[in-house]
C-alpha cells in the first residue's frame, strides 16, 4: 500500500514536471510572426511534455537500480533469473504504439490545417520557370492577397513584386495579408526559411514552387538560406520587414520611383574584398558569387532583428 502511494506520488511529480517543461518549451522559439507559428509551437510543446515524461520515467528506473540494485564489492552472486514476461512485453508494445499514433493523428490534423492556411507548398513539377512567368498584377490566390516572386541565387535573395514592378533585396510584407511566394532558383538548391514564421521550403532549380503564408506580427525578421548552397551559404540571408498595410503601401509606392541599383550581397562584397587582398591562408575553389541583383530597394541586413 505504502509503495503504491509513493509510486503514485512520484508519477504525479513527473506529470507536473513534464507539464512545466511543455509550457517552458514555448520560450525556446523565436517570436510567433505567422499564422503557422502557434500551431507548430503547440505541437512541439505537447511532444516536449510527453517526451519529458518518458525520459524522466526511464531515468527514474535507472536511478532506482543504480541506488538499490548495486552488487557489493565481493558479491559474486547472480540476480534473480527472470527471463521475461509476455504480458509486460505486450503492455510496452501497445502503449508506445498508442502514444506515437496519437501524436501522428494530431500532427496530420495540424498538417491539414497548415495546408488550408497555405504554408504547404504546391509544386509545379517539370514545368519550366519561363512558362510559369506571368504578367504584372497576376496573383495566384486571388484578390486581397499579395504575390511575391523570390529568386534565390548563389548568394543573394531577390524579391519581385510583379504587381508594382518593384524589386528589392529586403522582403517587405503587409501585416495580416496572405502572401503567396513563387520560389525559383537559377543555380542550385536553396532553402527559404524564416524562423519567426516557422516555415521552410526548399527552392529547387527547374521548378517554380508556390508557397503561401500570412504574417501576423510587425517586426524585422531574418530569412535564412536553409539548404546548403556553397561557399557563402552562411551569409545568404535577408531581412523580412512586416509592417502595417498602409506602411507597406507607401513603401511600395516609394520603391517604384527608385532607380535600379545593386542590391545587397554579402557574398559579392566579401569576394571583392578577398580578391583585393594578397592570398593568405588556405582557400579552396568555389564558383564566384553572382553579381548583386539590380533592384529598386537594397534595404538593409544589418539592423537589429526580432528573430
Amino acid at each position: 500500500m505504502i509503495r503504491f502511494v509513493l509510486l503514485s506520488a512520484w508519477i504525479g511529480l513527473l506529470v507536473v514536471a513534464s507539464h512545466w517543461m511543455g509550457q517552458e518549451a514555448y520560450r525556446w522559439f523565436p517570436v510567433q510572426a505567422s499564422n503557422a507559428a502557434p500551431l507548430v509551437d503547440d505541437l512541439f510543446s505537447l511532444e516536449t511534455a510527453i517526451g519529458t515524461f518518458v525520459f524522466l520515467g526511464v531515468l527514474s528506473v535507472l536511478l532506482w537500480v543504480l541506488l538499490f540494485n548495486r552488487a557489493e564489492k565481493y558479491d559474486q552472486e547472480d540476480g534473480p533469473p527472470m527471463e521475461g514476461n509476455t504480458r509486460l512485453e505486450i503492455v510496452w508494445t501497445v502503449i508506445p504504439l498508442v502514444i506515437v499514433m496519437a501524436i501522428a493523428v494530431v500532427s496530420i490534423r495540424v498538417n491539414r490545417e497548415l495546408g488550408v492556411l497555405g504554408p504547404m507548398e504546391h509544386v509545379h513539377g517539370g514545368e519550366l520557370i519561363e512558362a510559369m512567368d506571368h504578367g504584372p498584377g497576376a496573383s495566384a490566390a486571388g484578390s486581397g492577397s499579395l504575390q511575391v516572386d523570390v529568386i534565390a541565387r548563389q548568394w543573394s535573395w531577390e524579391f519581385r513584386y510583379p504587381g508594382a514592378q518593384v524589386s528589392a533585396t529586403e522582403l517587405h510584407l503587409p501585416l495580416d495579408v496572405p502572401v503567396t511566394f513563387k520560389l525559383t532558383s537559377p543555380d542550385v538548391l536553396h532553402g527559404f526559411y524564416v524562423p519567426a514564421f516557422r516555415l521552410k521550403q526548399d527552392v529547387v532549380p527547374g521548378r517554380a514552387i508556390d508557397f503561401s503564408l500570412t504574417p501576423t506580427r510587425s517586426g524585422r525578421y531574418r530569412l535564412r538560406d536553409s539548404q546548403f548552397s556553397g561557399a557563402w551559404f552562411a551569409a545568404n540571408q535577408a531581412d523580412v520587414v512586416v509592417e502595417s498595410p498602409e506602411a507597406f503601401g507607401s513603401w511600395l509606392e516609394a520603391a517604384s520611383h527608385q532607380p535600379l541599383q545593386p542590391g545587397l550581397s554579402v557574398a559579392a562584397d566579401e569576394a571583392e574584398r578577398l580578391a583585393r587582398q594578397p592570398a593568405g591562408g588556405i582557400r579552396w575553389a568555389t564558383v564566384p558569387p553572382a553579381p548583386p541583383p539590380l533592384v529598386n530597394v537594397p534595404g538593409s541586413n544589418s539592423l537589429p532583428h526580432d528573430a
Binding site: 526511464v58 528506473v61 535507472l62 537500480v65 543504480l66 540494485n69 548495486r70 552488487a71 558479491d75 552472486e77 547472480d78 540476480g79 534473480p80 527472470m82 521475461g84 514476461n85 509486460l88
Partner: peptide, 10 residues
C-alpha cells in the same frame, strides 16, 4: 530496463 531491474549491478 527489465534486465537491470532487481539485478546485481557491477
Amino acid at each position: 530496463l527489465g534486465t537491470l531491474w532487481g539485478g546485481k549491478l557491477k
